[in-house]
């Protein structure tokens, strides 16, 4: 599916074509016909070469690493040109925020090109149905767009900030944490999600029934450190502030998991049970990538387990005000 967008210069040029055409027909002056012919040929070449330029191109994007909002990332573009002639000055328009990847020339056959330093401003789950190619070649009067089928979901995780300065006062030093208070060696301490390959005898059937997910019992070994991050997504916060709050949450989770904590995320609608490791971090980030404020007024979160708990707020009247007072730390994202 192709479409054309005339640029300002293109509109002016077309107006000039019409006027000069009129002048030539009006005067019968062959030299004006000559100029009119030049302008017609430029118009025709502009269109035909643009169409030919985008013909026979296939594009594949591959991301080398997870994408975080506001954080430069790199991707590799594989372009196949099945035409006999090269294409010039083709841009690939990324479906997220309209960034352009510019390819000065594409020779016949398959070529790969890496792009670095691309930044997506907003987190989210981008459902992509098509990829758009654009060219203004050969002249400067129009852009021709062509859509290529590309069915994919791209997840842009919240921005990960350096949150360590904030954690200094909240996170106890390893010596202070000691054993979890509510347990003793070998006792059940919490349930976490099942990871492929684990033994089925440790499944926590009650929790599984409650959460509709396969949950595993975790037994204390004496050095478990628990952290619960509570995000206030009950509405009332400004959009920018909420985005900051989400980013703070993601950063906290990332940092605490790196520090070896079992981290749980609680929002008004969703709970990600305790877990640790990179896989668990991305479970949390998946949730945070798509989270939106809910108009819940008050948040049903009431219960806190043992361990470190941090509430992340983004408004004066947080929906989790009740539980926030019980937390070991509160971060107001508006002041970050």
């Amino acid at each position: 599916m192709a479409s054309i967008r005339l640029k300002k210069e293109g509109k002016r040029f077309l107006i000039a074509v019409v006027l000069i055409g009129f002048a030539s027909f009006n005067t019968g002056n062959n030299l004006i016909y000559l100029i009119f012919s030049l302008m017609l040929s430029i118009t025709l070449i502009s269109f035909v070469l643009a169409v030919v330029n985008l013909r026979g191109l296939r594009v594949q994007l591959s991301f080398k690493e997870p994408i975080y909002a506001e954080t430069p990332y790199s991707l590799e573009v594989e372009v196949e040109n099945s035409k006999a002639i090269p294409s010039y000055s083709v841009s690939i328009i990324l479906p997220f925020e309209g960034q352009r990847l510019y390819l000065p020339s594409i020779k016949r056959g398959v070529s790969r090109r890496g792009f670095e330093g691309i930044i997506i401003r907003k987190r989210g789950r981008y459902r992509v149905k098509e990829l758009r190619l654009m060219t203004g070649f050969p002249f400067i009067f129009m852009y021709l767009y062509k859509s290529l089928e590309w069915d994919a979901e791209v997840i842009v995780y919240p921005q990960i900030m350096d949150i360590r300065p904030l954690l200094v006062d909240m996170v106890p030093l390893p010596a202070e944490t000691g054993r979890p208070r509510i347990t003793h060696d070998g006792e059940f301490i919490f349930a976490r999600e099942y990871v492929y390959g684990e033994e089925s005898r440790r499944i926590d059937w009650k929790a599984t029934a409650r959460t509709q997910k396969t949950m595993m019992k975790v037994f204390s070994k004496g050095d478990e450190r628990l952290a619960t991050i509570i995000l206030d997504d009950a509405g009332g916060g400004m959009e920018d502030d909420f985005e900051k709050a989400v980013s703070v949450c993601a950063s906290l989770c990332s940092e605490l998991i790196q520090m070896g904590y079992y981290v749980r995320l609680i929002t008004c609608r969703k709970v990600v049970p305790f877990g640790r490791g990179r896989v668990h971090l991305f479970k949390i980030l998946d949730i945070l990538a798509g989270i939106r404020q809910v108009d819940a007024g008050r948040c049903p979160v009431e219960e806190l387990s043992e361990g470190l708990s941090i509430a992340v707020l983004c408004s004066d009247s947080p929906g989790i005000s009740g539980i926030a007072s019980q937390c070991s730390g509160v971060i107001d994202a508006r002041y970050i």
Binding site: N30, L34, S37, L38, L40
Partner: peptide, 11 residues
């Protein structure tokens, strides 16, 4: 193309 247009545009 200019030459071709020139000779073909109706006078």
């Amino acid at each position: 193309l200019t030459a071709m247009f020139f000779v073909t545009i109706p006078r």
